[in-house]
Design a protein around this nucleic acid. Structure first.
Length: 109
DNA sequence: CGTCTGACGCACG
DNA sequence: GCGTGCGCCAGAC
């Protein structure tokens, strides 16, 4: 995982997110070696739908723990439903136990 | 080739 | 604590 495209890295890290855990765009961006490219992470996830492999984009939120991408996800409450199924409490599009379910992705070299 | 946009993040007021 | 502005990287037009 070194000479892969930016998007590939994002997808890779995102798929590494364990069940019942979430991470932030900034964390992923930092993991892939581009802490300033948080926007790219979200953008990449935007076209995750284009990817053949399923990407748990619903487990990725912004640094505030807000479901910013729920509007771009399948349906409207899908993201919330999925998170709730994994034990993640999200109220008003915001994750309550964000600090508890937060998962820091491994740093990719 | 120049310009704008985007699921963000941080600095500043 | 909240609202606004700027910066970053990559792709689309």
């Amino acid at each position: 995982m070194v000479n892969t495209d930016f998007f590939e890295k994002v997808y890779f890290v995102t798929r590494l997110i364990p069940y019942g855990k979430i991470t932030t765009y900034g964390a992923i961006a930092k993991s892939i070696g581009a802490p300033k490219a948080a926007r790219m992470v979200g953008w990449a996830l935007n076209k995750c739908e284009n990817q053949t492999e399923f990407v748990p984009a619903h487990r990725v939120v912004n640094r505030n723990g807000i479901l910013t991408g729920k509007h771009h996800f399948f349906g409207f409450d899908t993201m919330k439903q999925l998170l709730h199924s994994e034990g993640i409490i999200c109220k008003n599009d915001k994750i309550i136990n964000f600090n508890k379910v937060f998962w820091e992705p491994p740093v990719i070299v």
